[in-house]
């Protein structure tokens, strides 16, 4: 099996991991923390000489699980996720967002973020990252048909909301 180079194979995944973490945590700072933690975990696996078949899928899985755990902890502290989004001031916006049609982006982003976690994660990986159903199933540790069901529901919900 191919040897994994942390610098060349894992580190460049940071933006992809960030987008996934952001879709789950809905907060840029928290998402970056999740990415750091994910990268450290994968780095340790590499250091310990563990074999990883698909380092990208593995990293995405770790990132998603960490982000979900983080979400659960937030809920334990009785901080509603939705409140958290509204509390976020504009300072957390990326410079990119200021360039594009911000209002439209924010509206659709909020729409997508209002979906259940499984639906928005599946949609993120498919429609934003362009991954195959098989890869998404591997990352989310569910069956391919479950992936399709989640994406189907997500697209349907987005379509309904856009029609209004």
């Amino acid at each position: 099996m191919k040897e994994i180079s942390f610098r060349n194979d894992v580190l460049p995944l940071k933006d992809k991991l960030f987008r996934l973490a952001l879709r789950i945590t809905l907060n840029r700072e928290d998402a970056e923390d999740m990415v750091q933690e994910t990268l450290i975990r994968v780095w340790k696996e590499c250091q310990d000489g563990k074999e990883i078949d698909n380092v990208e899928a593995f990293s995405l899985t770790v990132c998603r699980n960490l982000s979900i755990d983080y979400h659960a902890k937030l809920e334990q502290r009785n901080v509603a996720f939705d409140e958290d989004i509204h509390d976020q001031p504009d300072t957390t916006r990326s410079p990119f967002e200021t360039m594009v049609d911000r209002e439209r982006f924010q509206m659709l982003n909020a729409l997508m973020n209002s979906l259940p976690e499984k639906q928005r994660t599946a949609m993120q990986l498919r429609d934003v990252e362009g991954r195959s159903y098989k890869e998404i199933a591997e990352v989310m540790q569910i069956s391919e048909s479950d992936v399709k069901v989640n994406i189907f529901r997500a697209r349907k919900a987005m379509k309904e909301k856009l029609k209004r």
Partner: peptide, 22 residues
């Protein structure tokens, strides 16, 4: 046109990056 915003949003969402000092 009503669906255009969805697909352009998906494309734009790909541009999200970690902050510069990451």
């Amino acid at each position: 046109a009503q669906y255009a915003s969805l697909f352009t949003f998906m494309k734009e969402a790909q541009e999200e990056r970690v902050s510069d000092d990451f």
